[in-house]
């Protein structure tokens, strides 16, 4: 069983990488100056359901986040911090065929920019510094890592579309009462869209440049 699980991880990783977003180098010189307007606090609300997987999928109908955006230099560069992010609520928890799933984020997480496409206004990067404690019934485990995504200036949508392998199941603390369905070989994923609004109600813009 263990052997199978390990082999699965390799296959799943390869498959997901083929479909997933990769933050490869841009054809132009990479951006090193990131201008965010407006800077300051923002809120994020899910648009459509969020799907998390840890071998089996779970659906969250509600997820929201808040934090601060700021201009930055360098590549990669942290253009926002996520100081709070929730998955599900008491009334509408995330759920799977195994039952309701509690996902408690250990923040801050970050939003890191790596590439900017000036013609589309799309920034490519990842949500970083992810740590979340997950429990479903008596099974509990901790997920850490990052999740690739894009941010589109015209819509204000942060599309998180993680590639298998970016998120891992922690070995310390190791999973408890989860069986072979969640082990330290499991490659969790995090997919879904968030609409970002700055505190003044506008859609924030992220622009990368290389002066």
């Amino acid at each position: 069983m263990k052997k199978h699980t390990r082999r699965l991880a390799v296959v799943a990783g390869a498959a997901a990488a083929a479909f997933g977003l990769t933050a490869g180098p841009a054809s132009a010189a990479p951006s090193t100056v990131w201008t965010v307007t407006p800077t300051g606090s923002y809120t994020a609300t899910n648009s459509g359901n969020i799907v998390l997987t840890a071998t089996i999928p779970m659906t969250c109908t509600t997820s929201s986040a808040s934090g601060t955006m700021s201009s930055a230099t360098g590549n990669p560069a942290t253009v926002a911090t996520i100081s709070a992010i929730s998955f599900g609520t008491s009334a509408s928890p995330c759920t799977s065929v195994l039952g309701n799933v509690s996902t408690v984020a250990v923040t801050p997480w970050t939003v890191v920019a790596q590439d900017y496409n000036a013609s589309t206004g799309v920034t490519t990067g990842y949500v970083g510094n992810i740590t979340a404690n997950v429990s479903a019934g008596a099974c509990k485990f901790t997920v850490t890592g990052k999740a690739s995504g894009t941010y589109t200036n015209s819509s204000g949508v942060l599309a998180v579309n993680s590639v298998a392998g970016e998120l891992v199941v922690s070995s310390n603390p190791a999973p408890v009462n989860c069986g072979t369905v969640v082990t330290t070989s499991t490659k969790p994923t995090f997919k879904g869209n968030y609409v970002i609004k700055s505190s003044n109600g506008t859609i924030p813009k992220i622009v990368g440049s290389n002066p």
Partner: peptide
Amino acid sequence: PPALPVGYLLS
């Protein structure tokens, strides 16, 4: 997914 599960959920 992305719909919610339907039916009896173990836990």
